[in-house]
Simulated scan of single mutants.
Amino acid sequence: MSQSISYRRKLNFLQKLPLLIWLVVVWGALWQDFSAGNLIFGALIAIAVSQIFYLPPIELSGRFNVLWALTLALWFVKEVFVASFQVLFWAVFKGPTIRNAVIAVPLRSPSDLLMTAVGHVLSLIPGSLVVEVDRGCATLYVHAMHAPDPESVERVRKGIQEIEARLIHVMGTREELAMIKAEISGSPMTSYADKMRSANTPSAHSTQAEEVQ
């Protein structure tokens, strides 16, 4: 009996470990301090949060591409650098005349890990912030600076979906990676919300009913 309890505790810890590591990384990024003392303090807070509040287990894809992770890291540094100068330019030369927008961004994957990763990457890049997450249809609602027309709104949306594609290359499932490769070959992007809508159409239900019969 004690061995079974010990095994469950070990399994529970392993399920929480990716989330704990990610929380520590985010803690260091928010404080811009990756010293050992700050990371240890962040780890203690992450453990306390995971023990006090209910957190769903993180489902891993079973793959991690180191090369794409390094590429993502370099791209992220470049984006932070460029976005910082953009926000500075808007603040100095545009001021209150710029038009911001809250944009719905449907994602391809319903994975909590990927949605969280996309949200954190966005929040760490100046000029964008996730204001709400709809887990049911894998959609982020993002506040974006300087999006005055439909073209700029669509450009922001495509840019966020590109972040998701980069993260899928790093740690997405093989099925999600196949979707990205199909898009590169010319297939249109299919979001998780699109899949839900197509699954709930009358034609889909009638087809399912015919299959049951």
Rank of each mutant, 00 (worst) to 15 (best):
Asp112Gly: 14
Leu114Trp: 00
Leu114Gly: 03
Leu114Arg: 01
Met115Ile: 15
Val118Lys: 00
Val118Ala: 03
Gly119Ile: 06
Gly119Val: 07
His120Asp: 15
His120Phe: 10
Val121Leu: 09
Val121Met: 05
Leu122Ile: 09
Ser123Ile: 00
Leu124Arg: 00
Ile125Cys: 08
Pro126Gln: 07
Pro126Ile: 02
Pro126Arg: 04
Pro126Tyr: 05
Pro126Leu: 07
Gly127Pro: 05
Gly127Asp: 05
Ser128His: 10
Ser128Tyr: 05
Leu129Phe: 07
Leu129Gln: 04
Val130Tyr: 00
Val130Gly: 01
Val130Ile: 10
Val131Leu: 04
Val131Phe: 04
Val131Asn: 08
Val131Ala: 07
Val133His: 02
Val133Phe: 03
Asp134Ala: 14
Asp134Met: 05
Arg135Asp: 11
Arg135Glu: 09
Arg135Thr: 09
Arg135Tyr: 09
Gly136Thr: 13
Gly136Ala: 15
Ala138Lys: 04
Thr139His: 01
Leu140Asn: 03
Leu140Ala: 03
Tyr141Phe: 14
Val142Thr: 04
His143Thr: 06
Ala144Glu: 11
Ala144Val: 13
Ala144His: 10
Met145Gly: 10
Met145His: 08
Met145Arg: 12
His146Ser: 13
His146Asn: 15
Ala147His: 05
Ala147Pro: 08
Pro148Trp: 00
Pro148Ala: 04
Pro148Thr: 04
Pro148Lys: 01
Pro150Asp: 11
Pro150Asn: 08
Pro150Gly: 10
Pro150Phe: 07
Glu151His: 12
Ser152Cys: 10
Ser152Leu: 11
Ser152Tyr: 05
Val153Thr: 08
Val153Ala: 08
Val153Arg: 06
Glu154Ser: 11
Val156Ile: 13
Arg157Pro: 08
Arg157Lys: 15
Lys158Val: 12
Lys158Trp: 03
Lys158Arg: 15
Gly159Glu: 07
Ile160Phe: 06
Ile160Leu: 07
Gln161Glu: 12
Glu162Ser: 15
Ile163Ser: 07
Glu164His: 04
Leu167Tyr: 01
Leu167Thr: 03
Ile168Tyr: 05
His169Leu: 14
His169Trp: 13
Val170His: 03
Val170Cys: 06
Val170Trp: 02
Met171Ala: 12
Gly172Ile: 03
Gly172Trp: 04
Glu175Cys: 09
Glu175Met: 11
Glu175Asp: 14
Glu176Gly: 06
Glu176Cys: 09
Leu177Ala: 15
Ala178Leu: 10
Ala178Trp: 04
Met179Asp: 15
Ile180Cys: 02
Lys181Ala: 14
Lys181Pro: 00
Lys181Met: 12
Ala182Asp: 12
Ala182Lys: 07
Ala182Asn: 11
Glu183Gln: 06
Ile184Asp: 11
Ile184Gly: 10
Gly186Ser: 06
Gly186Pro: 02
Ser187Asp: 13
Ser187Tyr: 06
Ser187Lys: 15
Pro188Ser: 11
Pro188Trp: 01
Pro188Thr: 08
Thr190Glu: 14
Thr190Leu: 14
Thr190Val: 13
